[in-house]
Amino acid sequence: MDILSIIFIVAGLFFMIVAAIGVVRLPDVFSRSHAVSLTDSLGAFLMLVGIAFHEGLGKNTLKILVVLALLYILNPVIAHATIRAAFRSGVKPWQKKSS
């Protein structure tokens, strides 16, 4: 059981590191939000499932799943609100230079 949880947590950390690299590296707001949503969806899922495996069955696992469902419902709302504010106030999306 410990080995399974270590595997899940390491996979989640991998996605989080990729997302942090993306946040530093990508060129504009819209593409950076993709990197943030990568962390939110898959990284958080894998890490919380790993911790739930470590906890075993019980009340704590149930509560961890509640936090996970909350993240899955709330994070798209926040990302959409931020991006819509950016779009309506006139930030131009970055385009690939056509040469």
Binding site: T39, A85, V91
Partner: peptide
């Protein structure tokens, strides 16, 4: 907006 996005992360 970059700053707000970073705070969400």
């Amino acid at each position: 907006f970059d700053r707000v996005l970073g705070l969400n992360g």
